[in-house]
Design a protein around this nucleic acid. Structure first.
Lengths: 153, 153
DNA sequence: CGTTTAGTTCTGAATATTCAGAACTAAACG
DNA sequence: CGTTTAGTTCTGAATATTCAGAACTAAACG
């Protein structure tokens, strides 16, 4: 992974600057993404980035909470293996969750406003759009799965 | 707007804690969202939140950059009016931009990896999914517009 | 059940962010 | 073209975040 050191640093700024994560989070994400099996141990991350155990521990906790990283243990070993969550269903769920949250927010604003101006009309339209997107989502996913199945024949 | 003071404070935490914006940004967003016309002047924000001109200036700059807020001047007045951008096309563009960015990131990772493991296969699938979503987007929007037109008859 | 291994949580120093206040700019009024 | 109005940019203090190092916990080895 030595050859990726600079790329990891460059790509990490996206996550820290745009997504509001600490630098160590961004580094870990990209390290994992660039590993052939997308997986690393705690120890490995510490030695590669020369960073403290607490920094890695907190970063991994944050990434697991966001659903970006998952950890596994193997055959009763103490050691844990941390990897990028590339599970399609999980990714779709994260996106879906965001939509639901956005819907909840817009809904609450509309409730609080309880008026009937042009803006209210627009807000209701935004809500309709969110609903429509959410509604269409399963269809897109179905089509995606279909596409995958066809390719594997 | 006095009656919304507490709600604004409560709703603002979402934006500061989850979206990585400064507190003043969250407050301004919600203030605007709860105003009947979704619009306010610079002066108005300063007096309502008892906050400095620089804080408001920087917050509005950030919000305009993110596409959440737009500002207008009126009839050659010096004063500017800041409002939430509820323009559907603009909102859709922001979402689209995010997709394009995500696509670019995943693409770059795949390029850098230049391997052919199970993870690579998964990443290519993620890319396919992003592409499919982007492809379907215009259709959803068309359907949405259609829905709006039918309602207005 | 003492020891090791693997990671977590606590404490505080270094650093970054947020914002107030002052200095500044740019438009347009008179 | 001096003055006012409306906002921006600069400077630094207050506060929050990030992370290192130390103390701690929890699992499982022997």
């Amino acid at each position: 992974m030595e050859r990726y050191r600079e790329e990891i640093e460059r790509l990490s700024t996206t996550f820290s600057e745009k997504d509001g994560m600490p630098p160590v989070c961004g580094r870990i994400i990209n390290y994992l993404f660039l590993k052939p099996d997308a997986e690393a141990t705690f120890e490995e991350l510490i030695t590669y980035f020369q960073v403290s155990k607490s920094a890695v521990s907190n970063a991994l906790k944050m990434l697991e909470q966001r659903g970006v990283v998952i950890s596994k243990t193997r055959y009763g070993q103490r050691k844990r293996y941390f990897s990028i969550n590339v599970n399609i269903d999980d990714i779709l769920n994260v996106i879906s969750e965001k939509h639901i949250q956005m819907k909840g927010y817009v809904h609450e604003i509309i409730q609080l406003r309880s008026s009937d101006t042009e803006v209210d009309k627009n807000l209701r339209n935004v809500l309709k759009l969110i609903n429509l997107i959410n509604e269409k989502y399963p269809q897109i996913i179905a089509e995606f799965r279909n596409q995958l199945n066809n390719e594997n024949q």
